[in-house]
């Protein structure tokens, strides 16, 4: 077991989509605790008539969903967190 290591948390951010002030999180494609690969689709947001896929910035475990389905977020906002090291052993 040994000492607990720091768990690095990476932000899942809504990227700038170009003149869009607000998006709605329409679905999370992964649940908290799921392993995700870097670049894997983790969420879908919608603005106007566009579905935009949010990808995992790093490989790890989906640690937290900060903006649940149906809620809105602004570009630049953190909507979830990925733990880069799954186990703190």
């Amino acid at each position: 077991m040994g000492r607990r290591k720091e768990v690095e948390l990476a932000d899942i951010v809504v990227p700038p989509l170009g003149d869009v002030q607000e998006v709605r999180v329409v679905r999370w494609l992964r649940d908290v605790g799921d392993e995700v690969e870097a670049g894997e689709a983790v969420a879908e947001v919608e603005a106007e008539k566009a579905t935009f896929v949010i990808e995992a910035p790093v490989k790890g475990k989906l640690f937290a969903i900060l903006v649940p389905e149906g809620r809105t977020a602004a570009p630049g906002e953190v909507i979830g967190k990925i733990a880069e090291k799954g186990d703190a052993e």
Binding site: P16, G18, D19, E48, A50
Partner: peptide, 9 residues
């Protein structure tokens, strides 16, 4: 072209 969903629509 442009990284903008608004522009694209």
């Amino acid at each position: 072209w442009k990284r903008s969903v608004k522009w694209y629509i």
